[in-house]
Design a binder for these strands. Structure first.
Length: 580
RNA sequence: GCUCCCGUAGCUCAGUCGGAUAGAGCAACGGUUUCCUAAACCGCAGGUCGUAGGUUCGAUUCCUACCGGGGGCGCCA
């Protein structure tokens, strides 16, 4: 393993075992980052308590075993029993060389590769994508990239709203306009226009309302070709629009990833039969329900999960349980990731519990609700556009690119026009995505263009700039990046040491991020790395006269830093430009 | 009413499987450019970690209560 904290844990475990007589496998040496040394091991405190021994003496005994001598130049027992570890430069050099030699820059593959389904974005047909879709889309996409990178088989699913009562009025409105051949264009500045027209008609006319209701029934039967053709056209046109948004935003989702509610609809009756056979289906107030333990309604009575309305119709609980079933049984997924807003929390818990009771969602299969908070405006309410509606996603994307353009025009006027256009995109979209990813997903956050595009602080441009500066060094040196990859760097100055330690923790950062499904952890890591690099950059000249002896070594550190930055940003769905 | 989540520096945010003086960025103040991109770096300053108890050798982290903010709580999704 390239991570020294990980590597040093093994001899520490042995040392603790030798001193305590406990099996090494049961011991956690509690190796952590430290501001007093390269790392600290806190395991002595807990073990001493457990064994009724003096923690300081235990720590001293561990150090006295000599098992750490190969890796550490200094092992000091401090305070109540912390073991402060300082790694030898040779050990760090070797670890860096190992990371540099791997095309994964030191990131381990997952111990057990799984099939994972990541459900994210989920817009509605005939409606606009707005700011509410931004976080789920960006977070889901980052998780997809990371899960794939560590070796899982990832299936992206875009669970779009393409079924249900609104389609009665939408289809009927199309019929009025001339049926399937009628003109239907999604106006990118008002993608919900068609929906609003249909809605207005529905609200104004009882006659239309009746036709719409009849049309829903016809749709549900899936037998009427003209109805299905119009429905398909609505879905296709919306998918075109979604692809425009996803393309500009630079996310992986495409129309092939669409698995809408309509897909599950034909399987719902069979799912209800299974619930029934399992003895889980009950009746309550005329509806078919599953009694999921642990949930209560306003009156303090048990709260049911309704899977079939009194009217006989299915709802999102029906759809979501069917969906779990499909993902586990057809796709053989063992990890079901739901990137959905926090308000769905209780609903999803009930769905997961019901699926578990059905014997479908059982180990090793499991589901995770990767919930996210809201994007707020200055008024602390959900970000609005000038019209007072939730801000449209495409407008935000375009505005990000426009702001990127302004920055490039000011800062990099010398670049060729096509490169400027690309850079504007890289910076603008990068800043927008990074703002979504860099703070804890479960909290609401306040949207602020000037902060996310700031060229300092924990922002995408800061990270991109660090990367570009490294590329510039190699351009100036006329040395190829690949040519220094065999070099084992020498760790001398404190900034080299700090950079090295940071570089070697990429693996831990990626895995920690995935353990918590929290992309902001990777962001924090990359920001720390960029800061460590810029400090190194100031203090450790690479190409200047008088530094020939350290040149190769520092070029190797630069190359690895750039690779980690580029790979790390790529895992977030953000590009790293070579010039800016 | 029940329940879930959040509350850390003036602002925006990290951190917390219990550990040693709680960290960044912005803003403020003071420095650094004959030198690889100053979109940077270095320094200084700033916090009773919502409040009050409890457990512990040790609590911002765990438990309880309360205060403040937000979400959810049966036939829309």
């Amino acid at each position: 393993m390239a991570d020294p904290l990980h590597t040093v844990a093994a001899p520490l475990r042995e040392a603790f075992a030798a001193v305590t007589g406990l099996p090494a496998a049961d011991i956690d040496p509690v190796v952590r980052n430290s501001d007093r040394a390269d790392a600290q091991a806190n395991g002595a405190l807990a073990l001493a308590k457990q064994l009724g021994r003096n923690p300081r003496e235990l720590a001293e005994a561990v150090v006295a075993t000599g098992l750490l001598a190969d890796l550490c130049s200094n092992t000091e027992v401090a305070g109540p029993g912390f073991i402060n570890l300082t790694f030898t430069p040779e050990f760090l050099s070797a670890q860096v060389a190992e990371a540099a030699a791997s095309d994964r820059v030191g990131v381990r593959r997952a111990a057990t590769p799984e099939i994972a389904v990541v459900d994210y974005s989920a817009p509605n047909v005939a409606k606009e994508m707005h700011v509410g879709h931004l976080r789920t889309t960006v977070i889901g996409d980052a998780l997809v990239r990371m899960l794939e990178f560590v070796g899982h088989t990832v299936i992206r699913e875009n669970h779009i709203g393409d079924w249900g009562t609104p389609f009665g009025m939408l289809i009927e409105h199309m019929v009025d306009l001339g049926g399937v051949d009628a003109e239907l264009t999604i106006d990118l500045s008002d993608p919900s226009a068609f929906y609003k027209q249909a809605r207005a008609k529905f609200d104004a006319s009882d006659e239309f309302k009746d036709r719409a209701r009849a049309r829903v029934t016809l749709l549900q039967s899936r037998t009427d070709a003209p109805t299905m053709a119009i429905w398909q056209k609505l879905v296709d046109k919306s998918a075109d629009y979604f692809d425009v948004v996803y393309g500009k935003l630079g996310v992986l989702l495409r129309r092939d990833d669409i698995v809408g509610e309509s897909f599950y609809q034909p399987m719902m009756a069979a799912m209800l039969d299974r619930l029934d056979q399992a003895g889980l289906l009950a009746e309550s107030e005329g509806a078919k329900v599953v009694w999921v333990p642990g949930f209560k309604n306003r009156e303090g009575e048990p709260l049911p999960l309704i899977v079939q309305a009194r009217t006989g119709g299915f709802n999102y609980a029906t759809s979501d349980i069917t969906c779990v079933l499909d993902r586990v049984e057809r796709l053989h997924a063992t990890l079901l990731v739901y990137c959905v807003g926090t308000p769905q929390s209780q609903h999803l818990q009930m769905v997961f519990k019901a699926s578990e009771m059905l014997g479908v969602l059982v180990p090793p299969a499991r589901a995770v609700h990767v919930n996210n908070g809201n994007v707020l405006g200055d008024d602390r309410k959900i970000l609005k556009s000038r019209s007072g509606e939730p801000a449209m996603l495409l407008d935000l994307v375009d505005a990000a690119i426009e702001r990127g353009r302004a920055i490039v025009a000011e800062r990099s006027p010398e670049l060729p026009a096509d490169e400027k256009a690309e850079l504007a995109n890289t910076i603008g979209i990068g800043a927008l995505k990074y703002a979504e990813l860099s703070s804890d997903r479960i909290k609401d956050y306040v949207f602020d263009w000037s902060r996310m595009l700031a060229l300092e602080g924990n922002t995408a441009p800061y990270l991109q700039y660090a990367h570009a500066r490294i590329c510039s060094i190699f351009r100036k040196a006329e040395v190829s990046r690949a040519s220094v990859r065999g070099v084992t760097p020498t760790i001398g100055q404190s900034q080299e040491r700090a950079l090295t330690l940071q570089l070697l923790q990429f693996d831990a950062a990626v895995h920690d991020t995935l353990d918590k499904f929290s992309p902001h952890r990777l962001c924090t890591y990359l920001f720390d790395l960029a800061q460590a690099f810029t400090s190194f950059y100031e203090a450790c000249p690479v190409l200047k006269d008088g530094y020939e002896a350290t040149r190769e070594s520092r070029l190797a550190l630069c190359d690895l830093t750039a690779r980690v930055l580029q790979q790390g940003l790529a895992l977030l769905g953000i590009e790293a430009p070579e010039r800016m």
